[in-house]
């Protein structure tokens, strides 16, 4: 077998992926428990979401979910991202590429640490949501660049392998950040605080 073939199941990248997802879910569970008990500070008001904001956010989440399900499924079950799974992954990725700058424009200003969207206004996101947002953007850029550069005749097999690994790990970071961001946004919209 070639070095290009990656281990399936819980070997290699698989166990790191599972472990990080479990850790994140444990954190969210703990956080939710704290939130219910009122020990964690939350937004005082629900953020005002316009129609386009909702659309962009949910499409972006759907795109990330499509990429995550297809690639994580491949990692766990076949070791290869091929067939229709690859087609859907590409479709999700194509959407993600163009929505991420929109998200940056949409929420970048309101996600600055220690600064409200406009002076005097209440902050739209709390620190956790901001952190998740910036991780999603920075990891997203790496996740996008790695396959884009692969499409150019620059790197050989070993370089492409490294780029693929970068794509895997940064993609995982995007997914974890997106889950966390989604959770915090959801929690805020529940009016928990």
């Amino acid at each position: 077998m070639l070095a290009t073939t990656h281990a399936t199941g819980l070997q290699g990248f698989g166990w790191k992926m599972i472990a990080s997802l479990i850790l994140l879910l444990l954190f969210i569970g703990w956080h939710y428990f704290q939130a219910v008990r009122g020990r964690e500070p939350f937004m005082k008001t629900r953020p005002g979401w316009g129609f386009f904001v909702k659309i962009f956010y949910f499409v972006a989440v759907a795109a990330i979910a499509a990429c995550a399900v297809t690639s994580f499924g491949a990692v766990l079950f076949s070791g290869k991202l091929l067939g229709w799974a690859l087609v859907f992954h590409m479709m999700g990725a194509g959407t993600f590429v163009f929505l991420l700058p929109i998200l940056a424009l949409m929420w970048g200003r309101s996600s600055r640490f220690g600064q409200a969207y406009r002076p005097g206004r209440q902050e739209r996101f709390n620190g956790l949501a901001k952190l998740a947002f910036w991780i999603m953007l920075f990891a997203g850029v790496i996740t996008i660049y790695s396959p884009l550069i692969s499409m150019l005749p620059i790197f050989g097999t070993e370089g492409l392998e490294i780029l693929l690994d970068i794509h895997r790990y940064s993609g995982l970071a995007v997914v974890l950040a997106a889950i966390l961001h989604g959770y915090v946004v959801w929690l805020g919209r529940q009016g928990q605080a």
Binding site: G94, V97, F98, P101, A104, G114, L148
Partner: peptide, 27 residues
């Protein structure tokens, strides 16, 4: 066409991130 558009979009995103990064560092 996708390659060109994707590089443009991601380049734009990179600039936005750089701007916020610089702004954050500055602050």
């Amino acid at each position: 066409a996708f390659k060109i558009a994707a590089f443009a979009a991601t380049g734009f995103l990179s600039l936005i991130l750089l701007m916020y990064l610089m702004s954050g560092l500055n602050r």
